[in-house]
Design a protein around this nucleic acid. Structure first.
Lengths: 148, 148
DNA sequence: TATAAAGTATATAGATTTAGTAGTCTTTAT
DNA sequence: ATAAAGACTACTAAATCTATATACTTTATA
């Protein structure tokens, strides 16, 4: 399961994605709109900023905005920044690899082999889906709900 | 990430799968072979037994064995029994569904839509892969390592 | 039939992680 | 000068996970 941190991060990026091109958004506004604890969101946005995803402006009239086009920000990257694991086993993770202590031979481990496949399948979707795609899906879903 | 509980469960089932058709195996033997804390494994095997995957025999000469053919036991089922989540979001889980508190409209949520896709991809592999398949993969990997 | 081997069941402790809060500092517009 | 806003660090509370402990039941067999 993704942590709340990761979920909040994606939510915030989607909101800022919708706002792309306009004035920066204040943390408090995002927090209120998305029902995210403000202080928690503060930390998360800081991480996203330090990872190069966000531009921030201090002082009165300041706030956050995307530094890149929403099309360029891919979910896999967000998960990695916020520490949300993509792989289901540490021995299969590309960015957070760790050997399984109990495992005798990693190279011939059948379990590992299966979960590498699972990781590849998930990763494919997550690297192909951008914040812009998420917004587009939202629009498509809303439209299909509103029957004309 | 899968919990150790889930990992140990799969490992134990694979060992018992290799032993399928023979005498039941003692917990202590499985624990020793797979480097799993015995008392912890005890609880796990009990869960697998109560879920109908294992046959157990008490008393001297007792132990555990698979109640079904290893081909019939699929990884998705094991994850579910041991509480290992397949979905990355609770609102997308088939067996452990929970509404996302911060979410305003689940039906039009683009994030949810993406992670449903991820779940479907993972689930497909995990319902198509049995304990027997894991064992077979192990053999294939071992063979390809041993160059003749 | 006593004993040891083995599973059953529940409780609990310890460690780790997650989620959230608090407080102080820095920058900037007005 | 002041207020608005982000930056940074520290801390706490709760939840979860991993593991251990203890007591009980069943069964083979000497």
């Amino acid at each position: 399961m993704l942590s709340k941190k990761t979920r909040y991060a994606i939510k915030a990026l989607v909101v800022m994605g919708k706002n792309f091109g306009n004035e920066p958004m204040q943390i408090s506004r995002i927090a209120a709109e998305e029902h995210i604890p403000k202080k928690f969101l503060e930390q998360i946005l800081l991480d996203l900023r330090n990872a190069g995803l966000l531009y921030s402006k201090k002082g009165a009239g300041g706030g956050y905005s995307l530094i890149k086009d929403p099309k360029e920000i891919v979910l896999a990257q967000v998960l990695r920044i916020t520490g949300g694991p993509i792989a289901l086993l540490p021995c299969v993770s590309l960015n957070f690899y760790q050997r399984c202590e109990e495992c005798m031979n990693e190279e011939t481990c059948g379990i590992r082999d299966v979960f590498m496949e699972v990781r590849n399948a998930s990763l494919k979707i997550l690297t192909e889906t951008s914040i812009a795609d998420v917004i587009e899906r939202e629009n498509t879903l809303s439209d299909s709900k509103t029957v004309i």
